[in-house]
Design a protein around this nucleic acid. Sequence first.
DNA 1: TATTGTTATACTCTATAACTATA
DNA 2: TATAGTTATAGAGTATAACAATA
Lengths: 162, 162
Amino acid sequence: MTGERPPVPPVPPARHVPPVPLESRLGYLLKHAQQRLARASAAALAPLGIDGHELAVLAVLAAEYPLSQVEVAGRLGVDRTTMVALVDGLEDQGLVERRRSPADRRKNIVELTPEGRDCLDRAERARLAMERRFLDPLDEETAAALVRALRILVVEERRIAE
Amino acid sequence: MTGERPPVPPVPPARHVPPVPLESRLGYLLKHAQQRLARASAAALAPLGIDGHELAVLAVLAAEYPLSQVEVAGRLGVDRTTMVALVDGLEDQGLVERRRSPADRRKNIVELTPEGRDCLDRAERARLAMERRFLDPLDEETAAALVRALRILVVEERRIAE
DNA sequence: TATTGTTATACTCTATAACTATA
DNA sequence: TATAGTTATAGAGTATAACAATA
């Protein structure tokens, strides 16, 4: 708090390379890796007219049948209110259709159209190619360890947290 | 599009465990790992009255001196307009002080107060303990590979992207 | 003219509340 | 009374534009 300071040492030119204290932080690394992948994913799916959330909906619908909107929302871990807009967008593009469940007329069964199935196939190929490019700078063993680690942290640990 | 459908197979009870198609997706895994860590980080830092962004500012300030607001913003990869509110909050808590640069009177030199330095020390210990707990379910080798992979993807690859 | 700090604005994402129709 | 779909609203976070002071 005294006025004595070293006489203004030169500051290195401002670059976007983070200084030492940041690049070893797990929070910094995870956040920026996620953002980088999100951008790559958006770019890879843009030609197909969908985004990552919409692709996830299509994939869930293809894996299980029949599913209502809340059930899809539960699989994806999103709120049922956000699912409405998601299904709206997919329906506008003709990729899914809403259908009242005969067994429970409160439920909207969401089902893939043939166009939706075709879009899903092409989107999955685009996603796989994107993930391969994204992991390309890693050697095979490190890439496998990354996926294994994330799966343990996200999938296995959830059981404990519940 | 015909009405012929299998007679409504039973739907498994809705749980939050993602179905097969999601847990192998890099995007899903990275996003949820990041969210999980962000929650753990917030909980670990809450007793100190700061959040992860504020801790990052303190750490950058401790590593380089002197730094103006834009320079800190550049190190963190955030906009200079968001840096204003960040420094406001830290200054209100007495952790940093603004000081006009004599060399360039447009610049605000941001410097740690003794309280800020103390807060940084305790926050860094809390963060390290939190990261250890977060990585605890991984064996040592996998945890090291995770950090190494993220560092390559985030730090090394940026040079190429620029 | 360009840069720094600042404010105001807009836009995205998400969470909450409330309404309806069904059960 | 509870659930499914829907809408509206509010909040956090972030990006953009503009302005004053300074270079």
